[in-house]
């Protein structure tokens, strides 16, 4: 009974937050609602027993996307003569038909899910049966790296492509408004960072290591690490540059190139493409992906080609 009540509450909150996020007059309120929506969504994932998704949703869907939106919002404010940017006043005539159509779709999918009974020979069940052979405890890591590695490899390529596309646009707009806060040096900032940054890194590494056996993995770890980077950028400890130094370039590319090179290796000794040659390769690829995900997200946030340490004493 309690559980049902909780679920109902979450669903209700999701719908109303979604409506608030897109129908509010003020863009700022919309962003805030979107972030809260993301957090509630994370709760929903956790409720249906998908903790990995819940963490990814909280870190990326709510956290970093929200941060990106706030940066974009600040740019708009900077351009718009101090008027707070507003969503367009009149609603599109298509709004209601689209809402009805989407509602119908959700209905159809829900019905489909209710009707579906687990078909025999389902891929997901085979994953669970095969997993112990590889000494992995986390089915998601198994799917991401062992069974459907190509998907993951291409996802990392998607992230790199997004970064490259964003960088190609840099310089077309006004990039003088940086992501930094205006007055970073309140005395507490340094003390806070000294505690938060090491802890964040610790959490990221833990998530990465835990990924082979329980909830966690490169995507969650990368997102958490990126959060540390965002803090450093916001507090002005790290500042943006237009071109990337060798270290940053390595960080961006580590995930994709490590995955490709290790994936091609089995061809040399006559095994199938992307067969991973042991646990070490899983750890190596996961670490490289974590670094790349974090680097790409930080650079996207800072709208920067590269980063450098800011030494201001």
């Amino acid at each position: 009974m309690m559980a049902l009540l909780l679920d109902g509450l979450i669903v209700l909150a999701l719908v109303s937050l979604a409506v608030q996020a897109i129908s509010g007059r003020s863009l700022f309120r919309g962003i805030i609602h979107f972030v809260v929506f993301g957090l509630t969504m994370a709760l929903a994932w956790a409720r249906i027993g998908a903790p990995d998704l819940a963490m990814a949703e909280a870190a990326i869907g709510a956290g970093l996307t929200g941060a990106l939106m706030m940066v974009a919002y600040r740019r708009l404010v900077a351009q718009g003569d101090n008027h707070s940017p507003r969503a367009p006043a009149q609603k599109s005539r298509l709004a209601i038909p689209i809402a009805v159509g989407s509602g119908l779709l959700v209905g159809v999918i829900g019905l489909g899910a209710l009707l579906a009974d687990n078909p025999p020979g389902e891929a997901g069940l085979i994953v669970l049966e095969t997993l112990p052979e590889y000494g992995l405890g986390n089915a998601i890591t198994g799917v991401l790296l062992l069974f459907r590695g190509l998907d993951t490899l291409l996802e990392i390529a998607v992230l790199l492509t997004a970064l490259l596309a964003a960088r190609a646009l840099a310089g077309t707009g006004d990039s003088s408004a940086t992501a930094r806060t205006q007055h970073p040096e309140t005395p507490l900032v340094g003390a806070l960072l000294a505690v938060v940054i090491p802890l964040t890194i610790l959490v990221a590494v833990h998530l990465l290591r835990a990924g082979t056996h329980e909830t966690g993995g490169a995507f969650q770890a990368g997102a958490v690490l990126a959060a540390a980077g965002v803090l450093l950028v916001l507090s002005g400890r790290v500042s943006r540059t237009d071109t990337a130094g060798p270290l940053v370039r390595l960080g961006i590319l580590a995930g994709l190139s490590a995955f490709i090179l290790i994936g091609l290796m089995p061809l040399l000794y006559g095994e199938a493409l992307l067969t991973l040659p042991g646990m070490w390769s899983i750890y190596l690829i996961e670490t490289a992906m974590m670094v790349s995900i974090a680097a790409a997200l930080i650079l996207l946030f800072a709208d920067a080609g590269g980063l450098k340490r800011d030494r201001r004493g």
Binding site: L150, L274, T275
Partner: peptide, 10 residues
């Protein structure tokens, strides 16, 4: 790919 036939692999 990776030696896993469908439905398990790609």
């Amino acid at each position: 790919l990776a030696g896993h036939n469908s439905p398990l692999g790609i």
